[in-house]
Structures are given as C-alpha cells and as structure tokens.
Simulated assay, not measured.
Amino acid sequence: MERGMNHKIHYPFANFADTVAVLPANDTMRKVPDKPESDRDADGPLITYFELARVMERASRRFSGLLRTELSKIGVDDIGPAQAMVLLAIGEAELSVGELLDRGYYMGSNISYYLKQLGDGDYIDRIASQRDKRSARIRLSEKGRKLCASLREAARSYERALTHGEQDRQNLETAFQTLHRLELVWGNAARYGI
C-alpha cells in the first residue's frame, strides 16, 4: 500500500453500517460513515474481497515458507509445513479426524495422507475407539509435542519482532477479528447463498 492513501475494504456479502478505513501513514483505524456507491472512488482505491483473498493466499504461502525454514533449522526433514500445521491444530487435544477437519482447511484425502505421514514419523498416536473399531482418535506423541513446542518458541520470536507495544497488539487483534468475520461471512455465503 502507498503511504498516505485511504483504503477501504468492500464486503460484497455483508451490509455493515460502517466501513473501516485503514490509514497506513500512522497505522490507526477510524470509522467512516458508509457512503453511496458513487462516492466511494473519490476517497481512494476500493479494496475488493478478491484482492483481500489474494493477499491472504500470498501471506499463507509465505508463512508456509517460514515454517519450512524453521523445520530445517531444527533438523526436521520428514514432514513439511502442511503436516506441521496439522500438528499445531491438534495441540493438546485428542481428536477424531472429523474434529480435526473442523479445525483447519483440509481436504479429506489430504488429511488422510498427512495423518499417515505423521503416524509414520511417530509425531502422532492413533487410539482406536472403544465403541467403533473403524474410527480412531488422534493425539500428539512426545515427538509431536516437542516439535510443536519448538515451532511455538520460534513463533514467539517473530511475534516479538512484529509487535512493539500495545497499539501493535491491538492491530493484530483487529486483523484477527476481521479475518475471522470474513471467514464466517464467506463460509455462510458459500453454504446458504447471499
């Protein structure tokens, strides 16, 4: 983004009373009244949901690259960033595959492949269900817990580099809330229509 330009985010599937304008010059946010469609271009470029989705996708790829680098630093070469994200999604819980699917964006065939790799590498333990021998619950093994702890420690060092005070923490929280709201709006729009 260019310094000093007002950028607005356009939510095509939602009707919010106010539009949030981000002012990059001083990294503050303010509410601006919703304007008629004809007036929007006068205030600066309109950020569409397609542009936002592209930024999110690029950020996700860059995060995968960062995870790959961290895995290399700690000597892990038998799994990749996608499998590491599955481990982090499992966390301290004991989950079914269905519950794990709800925690992250995985395709059914991908998660089966990832879980097989993680099981072969001894990063997870599979516990057969007492009621239904066909289903299993998944939890981190000791090796998986150690890897997750190392990745979380690396994440804390990046957080310290990114966050320099209360305003940065609030901006991060706002970004999370906005992305979470987009996830809900887009998910509902895909399921139920506009």
Rank of each mutant, 00 (worst) to 15 (best):
F16I: 08
A42W: 14
K143T: 02
R58V: 10
S129R: 15
Y11D: 10
F16K: 14
L162P: 04
T48M: 03
T19D: 14
F50A: 05
K143H: 12
A59C: 05
D27T: 14
E153V: 00
Y105F: 12
K73P: 01
R152M: 06
E183S: 14
R40Q: 09
N26M: 03
A136M: 04
Y49M: 07
S157F: 05
I90D: 06
A84S: 11
G165E: 07
I74L: 11
A155F: 07
R191T: 05
T174Y: 10
V76F: 13
T28Y: 09
H180S: 05
R169A: 15
D168T: 09
E94T: 15
N188D: 11
K31R: 12
A59N: 03
R68F: 13
L67V: 14
G98H: 10
L162C: 13
D168S: 15
E173Y: 03
G80E: 00
K116E: 04
S112W: 11
A190V: 12
S157Q: 15
T48I: 02
A161V: 08
A128H: 12
G119P: 08
H164G: 07
I111G: 04
E99P: 13
N188H: 14
F176D: 09
T178S: 09
A154T: 06
E183F: 15
Q130N: 04
D34T: 11
S150G: 10
L147P: 15
D43T: 02
R139N: 09
G4K: 03
F63Q: 13
L46K: 12
L23V: 10
V22N: 06
E2G: 12
S141L: 07
R103A: 05
S96Y: 03
Y192K: 13
V185L: 03
A25H: 11
H7E: 11
K133I: 02
P36V: 03
R126E: 02
T19W: 06
A14W: 03
D43Y: 14
G187W: 08
E153P: 04
L23Y: 15
A14P: 00
K146G: 05
D18E: 11
S72H: 14
E99Q: 15
K146Y: 08
E57T: 01
R181D: 01
R30S: 05
G80R: 08
L87H: 04
S72W: 13
A154G: 03
Q167K: 09
M1E: 03
L184P: 01
A17C: 11
K31T: 00
S141F: 04
M1P: 14
R54H: 14
I127D: 07
Y158C: 02
G108Y: 09
S96C: 03
M56N: 12
E153W: 00
E70W: 09
K116G: 04
